[in-house]
């Protein structure tokens, strides 16, 4: 459990970090909360030549609330999100990440940039139709959630870029529900389902369903969404929509679950999450 040798530098600003990354070459890596990267380094799955620590970059901290959206600094810790009752689904999800020690260290930027298929926040970004802002040597760009996650542990944040901000629509008037299924309270999700429902007099006006760990990237349960939109939010219609939640997914089996079991879980959890979201 001792990682390979590496160099270490502390960035004073985003631009400084970009410069350090450029100097460091292709094996330089950013360090945020370190709770995904450092375990991989200890097991020598990752062996960066240089770590560029973001801890002093204050411009990456803080949450701004502007009308109908939240702008969340990339260094915002899960524990800070957890405490934000006004952030609805995001707070509810953050509460269920790992244990408090991990939540005190892990950051939203790190979680999204890492692109772990079993991580909780990526599917939320996708369900909310949020986006991230990244800055690199060539300037700043915004990446929509749908374009961010590429594959297993890969995102479209390019090497040399810093994810600076996460943008989430406030989604006022949406009820939400999060169902995380794991063996132990502190585990990663075997399957997770986040649901957002906008109801108008008991009829579904809009619905978004994000699936965690049902593939190499987070997914939207589009068939289930389409089936529910415009329908009454009763048990029967919710169940009928949830039955479609695993359509078009092809999860891999792992130590704890077969693909069939994961698909089954996705359907069960979707029904539960939709029920909670509709009741809100």
């Amino acid at each position: 459990m001792i990682g390979a040798e590496f160099d270490y530098a502390v960035a004073e600003s985003v631009d400084d970090a970009i410069a350090l990354l450029a100097e460091g070459g292709e094996d330089a890596k950013l360090l945020a909360g370190g709770h995904s990267l450092v375990p991989l380094m200890k097991l020598r799955f990752a062996a960066p030549s240089l770590l560029v620590d973001l801890r002093r970059v204050d411009e990456l901290r803080g949450i701004q609330t502007g009308g109908d959206s939240f702008r969340i600094g990339a260094l915002t810790r899960h524990a800070e999100l957890q405490a934000r009752a006004d952030m609805g689904l995001v707070a509810a999800v953050a509460t269920q990440i790992a244990d408090q020690q991990v939540r005190n260290r892990g950051t939203i930027g790190g979680s999204l940039a890492h692109g772990d298929a079993a991580a909780d926040l990526p599917a939320v970004l996708l369900a909310c139709d949020g986006s991230v802002v990244v800055r690199g040597p060539d300037g700043e760009r915004e990446i929509a959630a749908a374009d961010l996650f590429e594959g297993y542990l890969t995102t479209t944040v390019a090497h040399g870029e810093v994810l600076t901000e996460v943008r989430l629509p406030a989604l006022t008037g949406y009820g939400y529900g999060y169902e995380k299924f794991n063996r132990r309270a502190e585990d990663w999700a075997m399957v997770g389902v986040s649901a957002l429902v906008k109801s108008d007099g008991g009829v579904c006006q809009d619905v978004r369903i994000g699936l965690t760990h049902m593939g190499a990237t987070p997914l939207r349960a589009s068939a289930a969404e389409d089936a529910l939109r415009g329908q009454p939010l009763d048990a029967e219609h919710i169940a009928a929509a949830a039955a479609l939640a695993a359509d078009a997914t092809s999860p891999l089996g792992d130590l704890n679950a077969t693909p069939e079991y994961k698909q089954h879980l996705a359907r069960v959890l979707t029904r539960r999450a939709l029920t909670t979201a509709s009741a809100a």
Partner: peptide
């Protein structure tokens, strides 16, 4: 025994082939 796929249950680190530490 459970079917094997990705191997690791979560996504966290799993033991490398050969299990060096």
């Amino acid at each position: 025994l459970p079917a094997q796929g990705e191997g690791s249950a979560g996504s966290g680190p799993t033991i490398p082939e050969g299990g060096r530490s």
